[in-house]
Amino acid sequence: MNEKTAELYLSFAGIFHRPHPEVADNLEELIELWQEEIPESKVYIKEMEDYCQEYPLVDNRLNALWEHYIPLFEVGDIEAVPYASVYFDDNGLVLGREAEEVRGFYRSCGYEIGNERQELPDHLAVELEFLALLASEGKIQQLLEFEENHLKPFLRLVLPLIIKSKRPVYSNAAKILEIWKLNSDRKGD
């Protein structure tokens, strides 16, 4: 159970981090994982598989991912700002209170933002990566607490924007993450 959760969280972290050659290269593996562990994802998988076949070589695939990642998260339209503070703090800026709170949470669990691949603490991918690490260490109580207080409120705001962007890979991955983390909650309501 912990292992599966860790792997799923990490797979989504891999997608929502800035495009990385290793992730691009192993996209099929992530798709396989979702197909297997989140059966309702099937309908969203097809488009992603087509994408993988359209860009079999890692360099082309990486460039194609950048083409979507940048306007989606980085510069340009920025259809879905990936930083939680921007949604929770009134002024819509980065490094707000939410960023400090999640940074504090990471610290209390023994994690820091690393030196080499620095990122803001409340980046969607960093939160997902953190949960992967908690799950892999079996820190279930902290995981649930972080999910409830930080991740899920953020996902409720950011995922619809990513889904709406209709960007291959990203919007499908967002939909699958939504099914996994948010829809299952609704079912239980």
Partner: peptide, 25 residues
């Protein structure tokens, strides 16, 4: 997730977090 040795480590390659001593939030 686990590195070559199978023990939980910070995610290399594409990850952003590294392991440190826990501190008060």
């Amino acid at each position: 997730l686990y590195g070559a040795g199978g023990t939980a480590v910070a995610i290399s390659g594409f990850g952003a977090l590294t392991k440190a001593a826990p501190k008060p939030a």
